[in-house]
Each structure stands twice: as C-alpha cells, then as structure tokens.
C-alpha cells in the first residue's frame, strides 16, 4: 500500500508517494527528498539536530510522521538564505563563532528563527538560553549561540518585523 501526501518545502510544492507509513518527516527530507541539511542526532526528540519549522513553528522532525503533515508548509535550513544572502541568524552564527563541528547548527538556526518568531525572550540572555535548550551542542558553542541569537534578534527588530529580516526581502 502506498500513501500520497503533498507538502510545501521551502516554498516548493512536493508530491510524495510513501511505501511505508512509518517514514518520519526527518527521513523523508533526508533520504527521499535529498535535503540533508537537517541532521539526525538521536532520532527520538532528545537533541534538536532535526529542528525544522512546520507552519512557522519549530518541531523535532524525527518525532513527526511525514503522513501526519500532509499539506504542511515546511521550512528547512536549505530555505533560510535567499537570493544569495544569509539570514541575519546565519550571519550572526558565523560572526559569534556559534558553531564548531557544525552538525547541530542547522537545528540551532531553525530553533533560533522559531524562538525569535515566538517573541517571548525580550532580549533576555537567560530566556534565550532556556529557549535554546532543546538543541544540544556537544562542542558546547553555547556562549556564541546565545550571543548570536541576541544579536540577530536585535538586528531583525531594527529591520522591523520578526520573521522576514532578510536583507534582500526588506
């Protein structure tokens, strides 16, 4: 038996036939749609490496069955930079050295974008740390991650609006 779903991934409609109902959103992205920027660190929602935005909200894609997201709008790390320009969060991650090995970085960045959109941190480092604590980093680039999120948040606020914020989109 096969299952048909259609998703919008980074603005592109994808019609997918699944031969197995157990395919997770993460494995769909990585192994079937070849969008390997999203990483698998634990496959059980404990590390956050697989964080993507589904209808604007951050989720662990390893805990989501692809089938239950028929019709959803998915944004992954591949869809963050646009028109050759990095997103302010991406730029801030480089500037503050908020990464080392880089494996958790796509999840951290998606989580940071989600967190900024949630609008709950009010520029408070302690609340950023708390809000980013679903994303493990074994290299422990946490200090840089917190700085980067605060910096990007400030720049996005200055640019007006919490979501867009891309230099070319303004």
């Amino acid at each position: 038996m096969t299952f048909s779903i259609s998703l919008t991934v980074n603005g592109v409609r994808r019609d997918v036939e699944l031969d197995n109902p157990r395919v997770t959103l993460l494995d769909l992205l990585r192994e079937r749609l070849q969008l390997t920027g999203t990483k698998k660190g634990c496959d059980r929602g404990q590390c956050g490496a697989c964080t993507v935005l589904v209808d604007g909200r951050r989720i662990n894609s390893c805990l989501a069955l692809a089938l239950s997201h028929d019709g959803a709008d998915i944004r992954t790390i591949e869809g963050v930079a646009e028109g050759g320009h990095l997103h302010p969060v991406q730029e801030a991650f480089i500037a503050h050295d908020a990464l080392q090995c880089g494996f958790c970085t796509p999840g951290q960045i998606m989580s940071a974008i989600g967190l900024i959109q949630e609008g709950q941190t009010d520029g408070d480092p302690e609340r950023v740390r708390e809000g980013m604590s679903g994303n493990l980093c074994r290299c422990s680039a946490y200090a840089g991650i917190t700085e980067a999120v605060l910096d990007a948040q400030k720049k996005l606020a200055e640019a007006g609006g919490t979501d867009a914020g891309r230099r070319d989109a303004a």
């Binding site: 990585r30 192994e31 390997t36 920027g37 591949e78 500037a95 050295d97 880089g102």
Partner: peptide, 21 residues
C-alpha cells in the same frame, strides 16, 4: 578570522558522511 567553512555550515550545505547518496 571567522570560519572559512562557516557559510557551508550555516546553510546546511556542509556534507557530512551520512548526507551522501
């Protein structure tokens, strides 16, 4: 200097072993 592989790593374009098909 900032990381020369920074752009690859923040865009998901850095290829780790399991990303190959």
């Amino acid at each position: 200097l900032t990381r020369r592989d920074g752009v690859l790593k923040v865009t998901g374009a850095a290829t780790y072993a399991a990303d190959n098909h």
